[in-house]
Structures are given as C-alpha cells and as structure tokens.
Simulated scan of single mutants.
Amino acid sequence: MCNILVYDTTFYIRNRIKELVAKMDCTTVEVTTTQQLLASLSAPETVDLIIMDIMIPGEDGFALVKSISDMLHGIPIVILTSENKRASFVKGIQMGAADYILKPFEDDFLSSRIKEHVTKSKNRMTETREADKNIDLHQYLTRELIVAKKANYQVSLLFSIFHKNTKETSSSNEREYQRISEYLLPRLEDATFEQDLFVAYGSQSFIGVLPMCSEENRSLVDEKFIRVFSNLKLTNKALANYRLYNVFVTFPFDGETKDEIFSKLLTKTKYFMDNEKIEIVDI
C-alpha cells in the first residue's frame, strides 16, 4: 500500500494516474494549486511519492521542486511534464527530482517508474536505519569512550522515543511510525552539536551519543529536544497525538565500557517505558 500525491492542473492527467496506481494498491491525493500541495505536505509521513508538473502558471516549478526536496527528506519527486528540453531535464534533477518523465506517457512505463521509486525509497530508508543502528553507533561510541577516558570528560547517551496512545499495531501504524521517524530524525539532529551522533534506532526511537555532555547538562538537552518537538507539532498535524520522551545515561557513572553503558541505557529505557506504560513496535 502506498500514497501518491499528484499535482497537475489537468483533470485528464490526474485521472489517468489515479487509475494506474489503483491497480498497484495505491491511493492518490490530487491537488491543482501550490497552496493545496503544501497543505497536503503538512503531514509528509503520509506521502510515499510526489508526481508533479513544473509548468505551473505564474510560478517557478523548478524552485518549488527544490523547496519540497529541501523540506522533505527521502520522499521522491517525479516531474511529469511536456517540457521537452535537455536543459530542463538537467535542472529538474539538480533541483532534487528523482525522475523526469515526458508527456504524453505510456501507462506501463509510468507504472514501472512509480513502482521503482517507491520500492527504492523504502529500501533505502531501511538500509540506512540498519547501517546507523548496527555500525556507526557502536563504532562512534567506542571511539568516544576511548577519547573521554584519556581526556577525562563525560559522555552521555540519549534514548528518544516518540509515542502516541494506541493499542493498534497494524502495518499502517508501522508505516506511519517509519515516516514520522524519517521526518523527525534530521530535525532533532539539528538540535544536537556538531560532534554529537544522533541516529534512528528502531521504528519509534533514536539514540544520541553526546560527547562532553555531563549529568548536569542532560536536563538542558532534554528541554531543548522537547521544545523542538513541541514546535514541530504546531506545523505538522500528524504529530498532534504524539509525545517525545528522553532517557539518559552518562559515562563513567553508568558504565565504563561500551557494552556496559549501552546495556544500562536499554535497561533504563525499558524500565521507564514499563512505568509510563509505553509500548512501541521495537527497540
């Protein structure tokens, strides 16, 4: 199941795409103005693919593509247009489009491109999450603990969980969590310092390694993350029912080796979740 956002002023084009993707077990959201497009993207985790023309009356379609690409991480944009110029093709890709397809189009060709982009997007997100979880995090933590021991400073680990009150565990919820995780990751990461590592860890959680963050400074980090999350909720309706929870441990007080401190973080997180009656898909 996938959701495709279609921005085109021509009913015939929108209807053809709608009929095509219906055969792929996908749904479409049709918009005819930039205002409608941006309103539909207020909950980006509900969108798997954007198909749009660049020939927009009174607007710079390329600038709009770049704006959406900069705003949304990981959602492919397919330009579908009659603008048949090599320079336009090059510019569209440079602005962040994943593909540039000409009108008129063959149904089979467009269907195959849609399937490919949706599949690649989901696979890339999964691969990135697993790479972050299994390689970068542990390597970075090991290195930072070695340096911290020599330089005699503290290192804190942060476990962040986003959660809403629901007992449902359907595939649609798991997909929602995945999209929200992808949306939150770069925005919460912006709240960390340059030397920090902040990665996705599971479907509803993140882990941060914060060098030189002492026990005393943990409350400041917690407040900053909660403030950022609260501001995001004001502009993203999909976050309305969610809360963000943060759990910390600090080297050397909670452990002196990578395995000790990482184990303490997971144990403390699970204890916190049990007390708060929080259930998430995975950790």
Rank of each mutant, 00 (worst) to 15 (best):
L110G: 04
L110K: 09
L110M: 11
S111L: 10
S111Q: 14
S112D: 06
R113P: 02
I114L: 02
I114H: 04
I114N: 09
K115G: 01
K115C: 04
K115Q: 05
E116Q: 01
T119A: 05
T119S: 07
K120F: 02
K120E: 04
K122A: 04
K122R: 09
N123I: 01
N123F: 07
R124S: 04
R124E: 03
M125S: 02
T126W: 15
T128V: 02
T128Y: 12
T128H: 13
E130Q: 00
E130C: 00
E130P: 00
A131F: 13
D132R: 07
D132Q: 14
K133H: 11
I135T: 08
I135N: 14
I135S: 03
I135W: 06
D136H: 06
L137Q: 00
H138G: 10
H138Q: 12
Y140H: 05
L141N: 05
T142P: 08
T142M: 10
R143G: 08
L145D: 12
L145Q: 14
A148Q: 09
K149M: 08
K150Q: 11
K150N: 06
K150T: 11
A151C: 04
N152V: 04
N152E: 11
Y153C: 07
V155P: 15
V155Q: 06
S156P: 10
L158C: 08
F159I: 03
F159N: 08
S160Y: 11
S160L: 08
S160N: 14
F162S: 08
F162C: 10
H163I: 09
N165D: 15
N165Q: 13
N165T: 12
T166V: 10
K167G: 09
K167W: 12
E168G: 08
T169I: 03
S170N: 14
S171P: 00
S172W: 13
S172A: 12
N173H: 14
E174P: 00
R175Q: 06
R175D: 10
R175S: 03
R175V: 00
E176K: 11
E176R: 04
Q178I: 03
Q178M: 13
R179F: 15
R179I: 01
I180F: 05
I180S: 10
S181T: 00
S181F: 00
S181E: 00
Y183N: 07
L184K: 14
L185Q: 03
P186Q: 04
R187S: 08
L188R: 04
L188T: 02
D190G: 05
A191G: 00
A191R: 10
A191Y: 13
A191N: 12
T192H: 07
T192S: 04
F193A: 13
E194T: 09
E194I: 06
Q195A: 13
F198I: 02
V199K: 09
A200V: 09
G202Y: 07
G202T: 13
Q204T: 14
Q204F: 11
S205F: 02
S205T: 09
S205L: 03
I207N: 06
I207S: 06
I207D: 01
V209E: 03
V209R: 14
V209W: 07
P211Q: 05
P211S: 05
P211L: 04
M212K: 09
